[in-house]
Design a binder for these strands. Structure first.
Lengths: 109, 109
DNA sequence: TTAATATATGAACATGTATTCATATATCTG
DNA sequence: CAGATATATGAATACATGTTCATATATTAA
């Protein structure tokens, strides 16, 4: 009932309440400064927790907590190599969404 | 120092800490169920507060509070016609960002 | 096994946030 | 003007969230 019949997206597939929640949860992951900077770290190449923490001047614990959220939201994936756990972007959508927001912000909004 | 030299966006313009904050603030506006549904209401056509509230089965007060945030973030704009204030999307970017997120969510994430 | 390193996790704390309720402002009608 | 309607706003409440700190788990090296 929320999405009108005439919008592009709702023609393809109507937006359920569950979808709205999923969508809000997705954007919530992009709504924190630290998480954005973590994702940004992962754009050029995969990284271990320690390196991300160093790059952001934050504790590995704080980064680990945020990485857990990003992983739960399927924005990043992991790969263990010995003691270290390598984090990388789950797919290209992540950077697409980031860039879309960046465009808006950088165009003076 | 956060964005590597080799990423597309940072070549065009480096991402400052201020930009990260602006970006986080932008996504924060998309990170709430109610605000997403409000924006969705505005996709097909401009709407007054009362109608949005009715469509979402919420109080005009709650909607007004959220509309204020959306307006502060320049996602919507207003136009007064007599007693009623008509809200509409500020630009096409809003729906672009929404759709980009929707694609990700609907592709099973 | 013991020590060291990398990461994860739970509790606690401080801060932020969405809604409600009461009330205020603004516009229109009579 | 008074009354009705549309919207906005401030305070209060309940709940969510990010970081820190202490501690736990897992892997490697000696």
């Amino acid at each position: 009932m929320i999405p009108s019949k005439n919008t592009k997206f709702s023609l393809a597939s109507p937006i359920t309440q569950t979808t709205f929640c999923d969508l809000a949860d997705l954007f919530k992951l992009f709504s924190d400064n630290t998480r954005l900077r973590i994702l940004c770290c992962l754009f050029p190449k995969e990284q271990c927790v320690k390196n991300i923490a160093a790059a952001l001047h934050m504790t590995p614990s704080a980064i680990s907590h945020q990485l857990r959220l990003l992983k739960q939201g399927k924005l990043v994936k992991t790969q263990r190599i010995g003691q270290t756990i390598i984090y990388s972007l789950a797919d290209e959508h992540v950077q697409s969404i980031f860039n879309q927001g960046l465009n808006h912000v950088q165009e003076g909004k």
